[in-house]
Amino acid sequence: MSTSTTDRVALVTGGSGGIGRAVAERLAQDGLAVAVHYAGNRARAEETVAAITAAGGRAVAVGGDVADENAMSAAFDAVESAFGGVDVVVNTAGIMILAPIATFDLADLDRMHRTNIRGTFVVAQQAALKVRPGGAIVNFSTSVVRTQLPSYGAYVASKAAVEGLTLTLARELRGRDITVNAVAPGPTATPLFLDGKDDATVANFAEATPLERLGRPGDIAEAVSFLAGPARWVNGQVLYANGGLA
């Protein structure tokens, strides 16, 4: 049972679609007011806000480049202005570009790492300054850090950095009563994962788990809900939400 109450506030980066939208909607169901962050697609963020408010929740949309410290400082200020503070920050914003390391385009490397590493760092930095006691910071890694599939090298490098940042920040926030963890999803049926994969490839990923299916965005949102609410004794950890994928 969630310990979330109606005076708690969450900011979900990348909250306008895929896993981010599922997380925003789940936290709203848990009773949190939710700020749905978007980078460029305000209309999709407003759709998420509308879905939350139609279900009786409270939500606003906030925009900004996660890698821009001024934009994210303004986003946090907007959340505090709307709801009075910030208790939970969930970093779902990220991009994935796949190619072998030997032929990986370095411009793509820089673009991906700007969002996945710098973006997570900037948001985590703001969270470390502004999250209230009793709060939680949840970053996003990937199960491929452990499975190490070919063509995922650059993406894994960015997410391994997120794990290192997460575990260090948990220790730096000693005495603040703020937990810092990461969720590492397995193959999940989102546009980010499905893009560019044929049916056979998707089927192989589904069969790789003992549960013999892809994850659903709601499965990942459930893990975030746990870390954001009742899991006050889980800190400095990476939670693999992947259906038992090795």
Rank of each mutant, 00 (worst) to 15 (best):
residue 121 F to T: 02
residue 182 A to T: 11
residue 199 D to T: 13
residue 173 L to F: 00
residue 84 G to M: 02
residue 184 A to G: 07
residue 26 R to G: 06
residue 227 L to Y: 13
residue 115 T to C: 04
residue 206 A to K: 06
residue 227 L to E: 13
residue 40 G to Y: 09
residue 7 D to L: 07
residue 53 T to Y: 01
residue 10 A to H: 01
residue 108 D to I: 03
residue 101 I to W: 08
residue 126 Q to A: 15
residue 148 Q to D: 13
residue 173 L to V: 08
residue 112 M to A: 14
residue 105 D to I: 12
residue 231 A to Q: 05
residue 136 A to M: 11
residue 208 A to I: 09
residue 181 N to F: 06
residue 41 N to S: 15
residue 83 F to W: 06
residue 112 M to F: 04
residue 81 S to D: 15
residue 43 A to T: 13
residue 73 S to M: 00
residue 161 A to I: 12
residue 25 E to W: 04
residue 149 L to G: 11
residue 114 R to G: 02
residue 52 I to W: 04
residue 215 G to L: 07
residue 193 F to M: 08
residue 179 T to Q: 03
residue 246 A to V: 09
residue 234 V to W: 10
residue 90 V to C: 06
residue 61 A to S: 13
residue 57 G to V: 07
residue 210 P to Y: 14
residue 187 P to K: 04
residue 93 A to D: 09
residue 213 R to V: 13
residue 95 I to W: 08
residue 58 R to W: 11
residue 115 T to I: 15
residue 50 A to G: 06
residue 216 R to F: 04
residue 237 Q to M: 11
residue 158 S to W: 04
residue 94 G to R: 13
residue 212 E to R: 15
residue 95 I to H: 05
residue 29 Q to W: 01
residue 199 D to A: 15
residue 182 A to C: 12
residue 29 Q to R: 14
residue 207 E to R: 14
residue 235 N to V: 12
residue 108 D to C: 08
residue 165 L to A: 01
residue 180 V to N: 09
residue 38 Y to M: 04
residue 20 G to H: 01
residue 16 S to V: 03
